[in-house]
Design a protein around this nucleic acid. Sequence first.
DNA 1: CGGTTAATTGAACGCATTCAACACGAGTGG
DNA 2: CCACTCGTGTTGAATGCGTTCAATTAACCG
Lengths: 217, 217
Amino acid sequence: MSLAYPLDDPRTVRAPSALVEVMDRQGARVAFAANEEIYAQGEDVEYLYRVVRGVVRTTRLNAEGRRQIGDFYYPGDLFGLEPGPDHQFGAEALSGCEVQRVRHAAVRAFAGDAELDRAIFEATRRELQRLQEHVLLLGRKTAREKVASFLMGAALRQTEARVELPMGRQDMADYLGLTIETVSRMLTQLQGESVVEFPSHRCFRVKDWGTLEQLAD
Amino acid sequence: MSLAYPLDDPRTVRAPSALVEVMDRQGARVAFAANEEIYAQGEDVEYLYRVVRGVVRTTRLNAEGRRQIGDFYYPGDLFGLEPGPDHQFGAEALSGCEVQRVRHAAVRAFAGDAELDRAIFEATRRELQRLQEHVLLLGRKTAREKVASFLMGAALRQTEARVELPMGRQDMADYLGLTIETVSRMLTQLQGESVVEFPSHRCFRVKDWGTLEQLAD
DNA sequence: CGGTTAATTGAACGCATTCAACACGAGTGG
DNA sequence: CCACTCGTGTTGAATGCGTTCAATTAACCG
């Protein structure tokens, strides 16, 4: 077997077929209502998940109740891959959603299949890249830049001009390390400068790609 | 035994044996002076590295010159494993240091060895864990908590009561997403409260583990 | 329509930054 | 040994960005 050498750009790699096959054969589909918990922070890692429909968020709460969102997972994305034996972050259905899940034990039974190992490794590497960007965003960006980066990411995720935001302001804030008020102010500001336009709370359109790109770095 | 392993630290992540073997056989040792660049941000990923002596930092600069430190790597740690084909972060010798490096191509020649693949995968997962903690630190901790977390991490890295800090204040600040002044103030504050004690700038001792632990979460 | 939650806006506050001055230590040469 | 310098770290005062608290508005759903 061979892992992901040479290194390719994870952004170009989509759903790894070998893994999808195993998940299709061995995995069960489970539906979750909005805000329902898929697994809890601190729970043992048991399953490997894949989003079929809807969006999933991973969250972590500290002792004082401050919440940090790890990431948002869209249809096709793998999640639940964690470095340790227990979940550092919990997972919740953002909207009503459907996920496919398979026990790690079942995946392990297929170990030896090179393509499968590669698929899991790829997913882990993609996770690494997301986290690197997240660190950069949280560490050295202003509120304005954080929000711009977020909108940029959402816009790049879809091809249409009209971008749908599946999450509310609180989720955005907890991802960006800000408060809802600051997020709201920055959105108003960016809209006032005609960088973006919000026909409704959960939907926007980019009007000035240059400025947005520059702000997002 | 061909490899110097100057590690007495239980928390430091050691390179898995299969990988160490390959690096010993195929890898070259290279020495770097303090602040010398090991590889640049944006450069192609060519080698896999392992710290032999000294400490390495990974850094990323944005357009405005703001710097974010990804992590610090100690003897025994693997670094240079990145998710994409090019380095998102550059690597520099913090102090004078010695690293062992092996081309990914050489590692690839040994692919097929299950233990080796597993070793690289393990290293990637450890990287993931470090990043998860970093995200949490940057997103939802106060300056006081950030500095406390940093000291906690440094203290847990070694068994002795006297903890050596290999990096300066600027490096600490750029890791924590703060300024040197704020870092300095928090250190003075924690010392004033007898949580820690600094006999010199680069060396400290924990006096109140309970408080430090609580601050670090 | 109300009833409820989510989002925006305003005003005051506070934490971290900024800018500036000062202290300290290490290395160098008189 | 002291004076000098340079780099690094600390401290002070003022500013400002983002938060906090509070009130208002908008959206959603019966």
